[in-house]
Design a protein around this nucleic acid. Sequence first.
DNA 1: ACCCGTGTTGTTGTGCACAACATAAGAAAA
DNA 2: TTTTCTTATGTTGTGCACAACAACACGGGT
Lengths: 256, 256
Amino acid sequence: MPEELSLAASTTGARPADEGARGRFDRIYQTLRRRICLLDYAPDERLREEDLAEEFGVSRTPVRRVLVKLEAEGLLRSVHGVGTIVTDIEVGALAQVYELRVELAELVGKLSPVPVDDALKARFREIRQRCDSMVRKSDPREFARINMEFFHLFNSLTSNEPLRLVSERLYYQTTRIWLKTASRLREYEQLLNNEFVIFQREVADITEAVEQGDLVAAGHVRRAHISMSFSRIRQASESGTRRDDKPTGSAPPAHA
Amino acid sequence: MPEELSLAASTTGARPADEGARGRFDRIYQTLRRRICLLDYAPDERLREEDLAEEFGVSRTPVRRVLVKLEAEGLLRSVHGVGTIVTDIEVGALAQVYELRVELAELVGKLSPVPVDDALKARFREIRQRCDSMVRKSDPREFARINMEFFHLFNSLTSNEPLRLVSERLYYQTTRIWLKTASRLREYEQLLNNEFVIFQREVADITEAVEQGDLVAAGHVRRAHISMSFSRIRQASESGTRRDDKPTGSAPPAHA
DNA sequence: ACCCGTGTTGTTGTGCACAACATAAGAAAA
DNA sequence: TTTTCTTATGTTGTGCACAACAACACGGGT
C-alpha cells in the first residue's frame, strides 16, 4: 500500500473525513491515477471494483464513477465479465503521444503565457533545489514524483486552460512508460542516474529561462528534452527489452 | 425530438435492438453529444437523468455512466441536488480553445499523415458535392451536420490517434458557439449564407490540397479558416449580442 | 490422447430504493 | 412590509441485490 502524497490539496481542504461527494470523487480519482502512473498498478493488472470500494470505505457505485473517467482518459479499460484492466502501453503506440506532447510543450510557452512574478520564480527555484538534493538519493519513485510535480509547475506557465488539460492528459498517459522501460533494463542503476542528471539539467535550464521571463525559450528547452527523453526510451527499449537477453555490444543510452 | 443521423455506425452495426452493454453506452453517448452540439439541449439547460433513462429504455445507471464521460469532456456539469447542466460557453473562454485548435489543425497535416489513396480522395469529392448542393437549402442544422462530418474527414488525414482524439474533443467543445452566436444575431440569414459560402470554399480548397497529396497545405488552409471563423464569431458576438438592440451602423461580418 | 459441450465461478453491468443535498415556497415573527 | 426559519419538493449521489457475460475447469465422448 503506497504512501499517499497530497499532491493536489485542491478543492476543500482535503481532510480525511467530512468531505462532500465531489471531494470523495476527486480523492479517489487522484489516488488511482497516481497509482497507475507510478506503476503501483502494473499494466495489464486487473483491478477489482469491490476491493477498491472496500479500501476507500464506499460502495462500488462511486468507484465505478472514477473508473469510467479513468477509462475515458485511456488509463483503464473495463470489459464486461472480465475485469477492469490497467492499459498496457508500448513504445510504438506511445510514439504518437510523444509526437504530440513535443508540439504542445512548445505551445505552452507561446499561447497565453502567464506573467512571471517573483512567486513563480521562487517555486521554480524551490523545485530546482529539491531536484538537486534528490539526485543523491537515486530513488526512482521519488524521481517520478518530482518529475510529476515539475510537469505541473511547467504546465502552469500557460493560462490556456484547454492546453493545460490536454497536456496533463497526455503526460499521465506517457509517464508510466519511463518507469516500465527503465525497470526492465539491465543497466538499471546506470540509466537511472543518467536520467537524474539529465532531468536536473532540464530543470536548471527551464528555471533560468523563467528567471529571465523568456517562456518561449522555456518551451523550447522542454520540447527538446521531451523529444530526447523518448529517443532514449525507445533506444533502451529496442536494445534491451528482455533483461535475460544476451548482452548487446553497444551500451544503450549511457551518459551523454 | 431530433432526427437521429447514424453518423458513426462504428462498432457492431448499430441496429436498434440487440446490442451489448458497450453498444448501448456508445449509442447514448453519441446521441447526447450530438444533441448538445446541435443545441437541441441549450446551454444552461437542465437535463433530468430519469427522463433520459426513460427515453432510452434503460435505468438511470447506464445514463449516469454517459453523463460522467460527457462531464469529463466539459460538455456537462453535474451538481449534487441541483441537476445536470449543459455547459454554457462564452466567446471569451472559447478563445483559448480556438487558439489551441488552430495549432492542432496545422499539426494534422504534419504529424503522421495518412497515405492519400483514391478512396480518400473520393470521400472528399463526395462531401464537396454534398456541400455544394447544401448551399441552396440554407438550413443551419444541415450545415452543422455537414460541418461535423467534414471535420471527421479532415481529422482522418492524420494517423496520430491521440491528436485525432484531442482535436475531436476540442471541436465538440467549440462547435456549439457557432450556432449559439449565429442564432442571436439580427442579420441571421445574411450571416448564415455568408458562412455557407466560406465553408464551401474551405471544403473546396482542402479537397484540392488532398487531391494533390499535399496534406501540409490542407492543414494550413484549415488553420486559416478556423482562425478566421473565430474572428467572425467574436466580431459578431461583440457588435450584436442582443438582437433587440438598436441597430448598429456597421453591419458585422457581411460577405467577404 | 484429444476434442467438444457444459456447468461453475468470478467479474462487470443494471435496476431500484433510499440518503444527501440544494432550492424555493410558505408561515411566523419582528 | 420585511425578514427569517421551517418545510416541501425535486435532483443527483450511494448502497445493494441481481442479471449479463466471459473465462475456466470438468466430464463425456470419440
